[in-house]
Nucleic acid binder design. Structure first.
Length: 162
DNA sequence: CTCGTGATTGACT
DNA sequence: GTCAATCACGAGC
């Protein structure tokens, strides 16, 4: 079992956001994003990578939050194995990027559409870590709407991607 | 250390 | 045919 703290995310706002997969409407690939909030949207990109998003808003809206980085808490040995890293590599290499964290957690196509209220993959409140500074910046790896600062991350956390 | 490029699937024009 | 919300690796400073 894996535990990780979410330390970096990006917002994708459907029809109002040219960089969103759902900007041009519903397709077979992005249909999960049009579910009601609480589902996991996993997409495949660049021929070799998976990235995971948490669907938000009501059904039919098409908004989601891309999980860009985690701070590994538990299960790091298994994550290291999934990533093909050696024991001497630092933990920050395990999950400091959207495709890396999916590989570390073993998330792929089969997890697309997973109900986050189930017992396989879920998000919970972090009671041990409530005080932190949140910073924002332009999103990474996109070519449109680059002026929108919709990437949010925990300031000075060493497990973010940049 | 930074920078440039190759890998390679799926959906849309 | 083109483009995409990326990463790893090798070359060169």
């Amino acid at each position: 079992v894996f535990i990780g703290r979410i330390v970096e995310v990006e917002a994708y706002l459907g029809k109002t956001d040219p960089a969103s997969h759902t900007y041009r409407g519903k397709t077979k690939r992005n249909e999960v994003m049009f579910n009601e909030g609480g589902y996991l949207y996993v997409y495949f990109t660049y021929g070799m990578h998976y990235c995971c998003n948490v669907v938000t808003e009501a059904g039919g809206i098409g908004h989601a939050v891309l999980i860009r980085a985690l701070e590994p808490i538990s299960g790091t040995d298994k994550m290291r194995k999934n990533r093909g890293l050696s024991a001497s590599d630092p933990d920050k290499l395990l999950t400091n990027g959207p495709a890396k964290l999916c590989q570390a957690l073993g998330i792929d196509k089969k997890d697309n559409g997973t109900d986050l209220l189930g017992d396989e993959i879920f998000i919970c409140d972090d009671k041990a870590h409530t005080k932190f500074a949140i910073a924002s910046s332009p999103r990474i790896g996109i070519s449109s709407a680059a002026d929108k600062k919709w990437r949010y991350f925990i300031k000075e956390n060493s497990f973010i991607s940049k």
